[in-house]
Write a protein that binds this DNA or RNA. Structure first.
Lengths: 252, 252
DNA sequence: GCCTCCATGTCGGGT
DNA sequence: ACCCGACGTGGAGGC
């Protein structure tokens, strides 16, 4: 692995290094005082300040300040980077189409430019996702409730694929919606759409707990999540749905 | 503005520079071959590879590969960075509590380390957000429909604050939901929650287009967005809601 | 601190 | 290409 690095380059030197780095497909880091403007899905302007510009060979561009996890400005992967010296300043511009978007960074001064060819190690293993939660439930259906029997995952419906479809101890159809973390009312709405779709499909009268009788729904809805907000709990109760408190991975 | 920069430092040199940079409150960029592990809300491991580590004085840590807008691993602002040499390798660890999370980056080799004190220019101006759309509608309510009269923004309800509340030409209450871009079914669900909440509040019979009569709802719902997906359009029709095609900023 | 919702969300998978 | 939903979503604002 080789790193190219220049300190306090002139704009023209910086331009050369950038163009070489683009050519090599390097991952690039630029420190300097700059202004940033963006035009595309929205539009923004950012006054002069010291920032870190990261340029990736896949077309991604990130402008970072000293604060925040998020870049203050950026361009998604698939964009094309170009550099030029305009009006005595280094201008880096990243553009893409569909949608048409342009990010322009104008440097008053470049303090440090580094570029590195990066290789290997894209194999991230992640544990604790919603898929882990699904796996956990399929292996131990009793964690949902005794007698629960999963029949299908990603079962299609007119409202989209439901996470887990199954039957309870009484043989009543059950739609299970999985969330890896504490959830709000939106998840209940999602579950409700699946239940409604399944009721329609099975020719069962709608029964949403408001106009009908919530005590004997012919299709049950269960929300599996570590916890739910108060408002979500209300909506679960309205609809006659159940909540099962479960983490994506067993507590250690 | 001063930049500190070292090329191919030993682990111990890198450690000194890092600790100085932490002390100064610098924005730091480190190129090198490393492994990354995370434990907290979830858990992940990433094998050896060349990456860019960004450390911010506010506690944010970002590990970037050559691809993607998102860091492959990260730590949110508010974390604490520490560095050490362990087993002959530079180890950078960023931790926070609530929730307890730890990000550990172990460098087999550091190729380039730069640090800069950054100042100024946090004044980002953004146009084209949902707020712009709201402003646009409040200034020209006829863009929603002739005779529409906004009464309140962020009007509270049991389902949360609705974007715009008003009345139409007939004096019928209207809930307006704003979206800055093309929307799917989730936005319709959100609108439906507000409309339902308002109907309950006003003591009007629920009328969701399935069990009742969608032709004369006593509370109307209007979704203002540039466009809607087919499924969203279906759900709008089911509920008896309207869609108004409008961009957050006027077409140029 | 919890809750709610916006975001230039990003990203991956399906059709 | 669009649609859809998950994400260690992040971030702001209210209570």
């Amino acid at each position: 692995m080789t790193v190219t690095s220049v300190h306090d380059p002139s704009h023209r030197e910086a331009l050369w290094e950038l163009e070489d780095a683009f050519e090599r497909g390097d991952l690039i880091s630029v420190f300097g005082r700059c202004t940033v403007s963006y035009e595309g899905r929205a539009a923004s302007d950012l006054g002069a300040g010291d920032r870190l510009l990261v340029l990736k060979p896949d077309g991604a561009a990130l402008v970072h300040t000293d604060e925040g996890r998020q870049p203050v400005n950026w361009q998604p992967p698939g964009s094309e980077h170009r550099a030029a010296v305009r009006e005595g300043r280094l201008r880096v511009r990243s553009t893409r189409s569909n949608p048409d978007e342009t990010l322009t960074v104008r440097f008053a001064a470049v303090d440090q430019l580094s570029a590195m060819a990066v290789t290997g190690g894209r194999d991230l293993t992640l544990h604790g996702s919603e898929e882990d939660l699904r796996t956990r439930i399929l292996e131990r259906p009793d964690l949902v409730e005794p007698g629960f029997e999963p029949r299908e995952t990603e079962r299609p419906s007119s409202a989209g694929p439901m996470d887990v479809f199954g039957v309870d101890a009484d043989g009543t159809p059950v739609v299970v919606e999985l969330k890896r973390r504490r959830v709000g009312p939106d998840a209940v709405g999602q579950l409700a759409r699946y239940v409604r779709a399944l009721r329609e499909e099975l020719g069962i009268e709608a029964n949403d707990g408001e106009t009908g009788d919530a005590d004997s729904p012919e299709v049950r809805g269960i929300l599996v999540a570590p916890s739910v907000t108060d408002r979500a709990a209300e909506r679960l109760a309205e609809r006659g749905f159940d909540h099962v408190a479960l983490e994506p991975t067993p507590e250690e």
